[in-house]
Deep mutational scan, measured.
Amino acid sequence: VTTYKLVINGKTLKGETTTKAVDAETAEKAFKQYANDNGVDGVWTYDDATKTFTVTEMV
């Protein structure tokens, strides 16, 4: 189990959260659900070296 981080660069919501998951795919599903629940829709990137997902909403 690995800890993954999500950085949110939203128009109205900004911040970070973490989740523990067995792999990046599982973490991504959890983060996308979290973003969807919070009304964040944007471009996703993932950095495997730092285990960090970033979602950026276009203005």
Score class of each variant (00 low, 15 high):
residue 57 E to N: 05
residue 44 W to H: 00
residue 47 D to R: 03
residue 32 K to F: 06
residue 8 I to G: 02
residue 17 T to V: 15
residue 58 M to A: 14
residue 35 A to M: 07
residue 8 I to A: 02
residue 28 E to V: 08
residue 17 T to G: 04
residue 31 F to E: 00
residue 11 K to F: 14
residue 47 D to N: 08
residue 50 T to W: 04
residue 25 E to F: 15
residue 58 M to T: 14
residue 55 V to F: 03
residue 39 G to Q: 08
residue 3 T to N: 08
residue 33 Q to R: 12
residue 21 A to T: 05
residue 39 G to Y: 06
residue 32 K to V: 08
residue 36 N to K: 15
residue 57 E to H: 06
residue 26 T to L: 06
residue 2 T to M: 14
residue 3 T to C: 10
residue 50 T to V: 05
residue 6 L to I: 03
residue 51 K to Y: 10
residue 30 A to M: 13
residue 5 K to D: 02
residue 12 T to L: 09
residue 10 G to R: 04
residue 17 T to C: 12
residue 45 T to R: 06
residue 50 T to M: 05
residue 36 N to L: 14
residue 25 E to Q: 13
residue 28 E to M: 15
residue 52 T to P: 00
residue 45 T to N: 09
residue 39 G to R: 06
residue 51 K to C: 06
residue 34 Y to M: 04
residue 21 A to K: 03
residue 1 V to L: 08
residue 7 V to I: 13
residue 3 T to K: 12
residue 5 K to E: 03
residue 9 N to R: 11
residue 23 D to I: 03
residue 4 Y to A: 01
residue 11 K to Y: 08
residue 20 K to V: 15
residue 21 A to S: 06
residue 42 G to R: 01
residue 41 D to G: 09
residue 48 D to M: 09
residue 21 A to W: 03
residue 59 V to W: 11
residue 27 A to E: 00
residue 33 Q to F: 05
residue 19 T to P: 01
residue 19 T to K: 05
residue 27 A to F: 00
residue 39 G to I: 03
residue 20 K to T: 15
residue 51 K to N: 07
residue 55 V to Q: 01
residue 49 A to S: 13
residue 20 K to Y: 15
residue 29 K to P: 02
residue 38 N to K: 15
residue 53 F to K: 00
residue 9 N to C: 11
residue 15 G to L: 13
residue 5 K to T: 11
residue 48 D to A: 10
residue 16 E to K: 07
residue 13 L to K: 11
residue 10 G to Q: 05
residue 36 N to G: 09
residue 34 Y to Q: 03
residue 51 K to P: 00
residue 7 V to H: 06
residue 29 K to F: 07
residue 16 E to S: 12
residue 5 K to G: 03
residue 26 T to K: 06
residue 35 A to P: 01
residue 28 E to H: 15
residue 47 D to I: 05
residue 43 V to A: 09
residue 56 T to D: 10
residue 7 V to N: 04
residue 9 N to V: 15
residue 56 T to Q: 07
residue 26 T to S: 12
residue 15 G to V: 15
residue 42 G to L: 02
residue 33 Q to A: 11
residue 8 I to N: 01
residue 17 T to M: 13
residue 22 V to H: 09
residue 53 F to Q: 00
residue 23 D to P: 01
residue 41 D to C: 12
residue 33 Q to N: 08
residue 14 K to M: 09
residue 27 A to I: 01
residue 31 F to L: 05
residue 31 F to P: 00
residue 46 Y to H: 02
residue 52 T to M: 04
residue 38 N to G: 04
residue 37 D to G: 05
residue 12 T to S: 14
residue 45 T to C: 08
residue 1 V to F: 12
residue 57 E to M: 06
residue 3 T to Y: 08
residue 54 T to F: 09
residue 6 L to C: 08
residue 33 Q to C: 06
residue 59 V to S: 12
residue 54 T to P: 00
residue 9 N to Y: 15
residue 10 G to Y: 06
residue 13 L to P: 04
residue 59 V to G: 15
residue 53 F to M: 02
residue 58 M to F: 14
residue 30 A to I: 14
residue 15 G to N: 10
residue 2 T to Y: 15
residue 59 V to F: 12
residue 30 A to V: 14
residue 39 G to A: 08
residue 8 I to W: 08
residue 29 K to C: 05
residue 57 E to D: 09
residue 30 A to P: 02
residue 37 D to A: 14
residue 21 A to C: 07
residue 19 T to N: 04
residue 2 T to A: 10
residue 45 T to I: 09
residue 20 K to S: 15
residue 3 T to S: 06
residue 55 V to L: 10
residue 7 V to W: 05
residue 49 A to M: 13
residue 56 T to K: 05
residue 15 G to R: 13
residue 16 E to T: 15
residue 57 E to A: 09
residue 52 T to V: 06
residue 56 T to E: 09
residue 16 E to W: 14
residue 36 N to T: 15
residue 52 T to R: 03
residue 11 K to N: 09
residue 21 A to E: 03
residue 25 E to C: 10
residue 42 G to H: 02
residue 9 N to Q: 11
residue 53 F to H: 02
residue 37 D to I: 10
residue 13 L to G: 08
residue 32 K to Y: 06
residue 24 A to F: 14
residue 27 A to Y: 00
residue 54 T to I: 06
residue 31 F to W: 01
residue 36 N to H: 13
residue 27 A to M: 01
residue 31 F to I: 02
residue 24 A to V: 11
residue 42 G to F: 03
residue 11 K to C: 15
residue 44 W to P: 00
residue 2 T to F: 15
residue 29 K to I: 10
residue 15 G to S: 15
residue 11 K to I: 12
residue 49 A to R: 08
residue 20 K to W: 15
residue 33 Q to W: 05
residue 36 N to F: 14
residue 36 N to R: 13
residue 17 T to F: 14
residue 25 E to R: 11
residue 17 T to P: 03
residue 48 D to C: 05
residue 6 L to P: 00
residue 53 F to Y: 06
residue 41 D to T: 14
residue 43 V to I: 11
residue 13 L to R: 08
residue 54 T to W: 08
residue 24 A to T: 11
residue 40 V to W: 10
residue 39 G to P: 01
residue 9 N to G: 04
residue 43 V to F: 11
residue 27 A to Q: 01
residue 36 N to P: 01
residue 6 L to W: 02
residue 37 D to F: 07
residue 34 Y to N: 02
residue 47 D to G: 02
residue 24 A to I: 12
residue 9 N to A: 09
residue 56 T to N: 12
residue 41 D to I: 13
residue 35 A to T: 06
residue 23 D to S: 12
residue 35 A to Y: 03
residue 45 T to P: 00
residue 2 T to L: 14
residue 1 V to C: 14
residue 43 V to S: 09
residue 18 T to F: 13
residue 30 A to E: 12
residue 54 T to G: 03
residue 13 L to V: 13
residue 50 T to R: 05
residue 23 D to N: 11
residue 43 V to E: 11
residue 30 A to L: 15
residue 44 W to L: 03
residue 8 I to S: 03
residue 54 T to Y: 11
residue 25 E to L: 11
residue 57 E to F: 07
residue 52 T to G: 02
residue 28 E to G: 09
residue 52 T to D: 01
residue 8 I to R: 02
residue 32 K to M: 08
residue 29 K to Q: 08
residue 19 T to S: 06
residue 22 V to W: 09
residue 4 Y to S: 01
residue 21 A to F: 05
residue 29 K to S: 08
residue 21 A to R: 03
residue 29 K to V: 07
residue 47 D to V: 05
residue 14 K to W: 12
residue 11 K to G: 09
residue 20 K to N: 15
residue 33 Q to H: 07
residue 17 T to R: 12
residue 17 T to W: 13
residue 46 Y to D: 00
residue 5 K to C: 06
residue 12 T to A: 10
residue 38 N to F: 15
residue 23 D to E: 04
residue 34 Y to I: 07
residue 14 K to I: 09
residue 1 V to E: 15
residue 48 D to K: 08
residue 7 V to K: 09
residue 23 D to T: 05
residue 10 G to T: 15
residue 9 N to M: 13
residue 58 M to Y: 12
residue 33 Q to I: 14
residue 30 A to F: 15
residue 11 K to S: 09
residue 46 Y to L: 02
residue 28 E to C: 10
residue 18 T to C: 10
residue 5 K to W: 10
